[in-house]
């Protein structure tokens, strides 16, 4: 028996969330007195995984899996789980993990709990805490199944190092034709910008920016911080910014280290989606804006003055700390 963790990679390189998931899996393995096996698909260098606590790496290399495919990936990971007799499987909260998790759960007749925020409270019965009501509350849920699938919430465990010597084995799952019933015709992805899902810092702006022509200063600030840009719902509804930037209860969830909200009032539906961010900064000219109640730091003032000043100051700061 072992704890299996699926370590996602992009163009051969592991994502940060994958390493966090390994660290988390190691935490569970310690509770269960067992070891961590990582399974990866088309990753180039697996040596990094040992640093976070993997004892064994199952390395799948297969050209047919070069693009994500929920059915085939779930099939491959399920076979790895059987190979290892894994009773706990750790996934992340990426779009791909969320896509394949339900399929994997049916394949293995396993229970699945997403958005888990901490190590299991107990392992017998096996209970985990996870966020619900779009971060407005937490639930503690008990698994009733022999095999348990955990979707680890982003940024909820941290990149804990735990040097372990890891062995790597090639693993070739048997994939059948049904795994490839879906054909990816095209992928349209901006490669030069930070995505909201991966970002450590998110710079978000709302209707207070008055119009799309004023987003230059938001982009400058984001670029200076290496941050992703986001927006409130009306901003994307009006077409000032793309839908993919809409964050909140009905948009994307944000769980970054730092969230900077500029000219956003802080409606309950907006806050629900960004609550999981660790530190929140608000820039708003209305001292009564509800967002200040949910923020850690705030500046009451005109965004059109403050944002360029902040960008300048950060550039200076970066130059000094480089």
């Amino acid at each position: 028996m072992s704890v299996l963790v699926y370590t996602e990679s992009e163009e051969g390189k592991f994502k940060k969330i994958a390493l966090e998931a390994v660290a988390y899996a190691k935490g569970i393995a310690d509770q269960l007195d067992t070891q961590v096996t990582a399974v990866c698909i088309n990753a180039t260098d697996t040596s990094e995984l040992g640093k976070y606590g993997a004892s064994k790496v199952l390395k799948i290399t297969n050209d047919k899996l070069s693009k994500f495919n929920g059915e085939a990936y779930a099939d491959a990971i399920g076979q790895a789980a059987k190979n290892e007799d894994a009773k706990v499987i750790v996934l992340t909260s990426s779009a791909n993990s969320k896509f394949l998790a339900p399929t994997l759960a049916v394949n293995l007749e396993a229970g699945f709990v997403p958005n888990v925020v901490a190590l299991p409270e107990s392992t017998s019965p096996f209970k985990v805490k996870h966020s619900v009501f779009t971060n407005k509350a937490f639930a503690t849920t008990e698994f009733k199944t022999d095999i348990k699938i955990i979707g680890l919430g982003k940024n909820s465990y941290g990149l804990k190092e735990n040097e372990t010597s890891a062995s790597t084995e090639d693993f070739s799952p048997n994939l059948d034709a049904h795994d490839f019933d879906m054909e990816i015709v095209s992928v349209d992805k901006a490669t030069d910008t930070v995505t909201i899902a991966d970002a450590e810092i998110v710079v978000s702006a709302g209707r207070g920016m008055k119009g799309p022509e004023n987003w230059g200063m938001i982009e400058d600030l984001a670029e200076t911080l290496g941050a992703a840009t986001a927006c409130s719902k009306p901003v994307s509804d009006m077409g000032w910014r793309p839908h993919s930037e809409h964050v909140g209860q009905t948009g994307k969830p944000v769980a970054s280290n730092l969230y900077i909200a500029i000219g956003i009032s802080g409606a309950i539906q907006h806050l629900a989606g960004i609550n999981a961010s660790k530190v929140k900064v608000v820039i708003n000219n209305d001292p009564e804006a509800p967002f200040f109640k949910a923020a850690d730091y705030g500046i009451v003032g005109d965004a059109f003055e403050i944002v360029p000043q902040l960008t300048e100051k950060l550039k200076e700061f970066k130059a000094q700390n480089a």
Partner: peptide, 8 residues
């Protein structure tokens, strides 16, 4: 998808 979209 994270950071973009794909057509299937």
């Amino acid at each position: 998808i994270d950071g973009g979209k794909e057509t299937l």
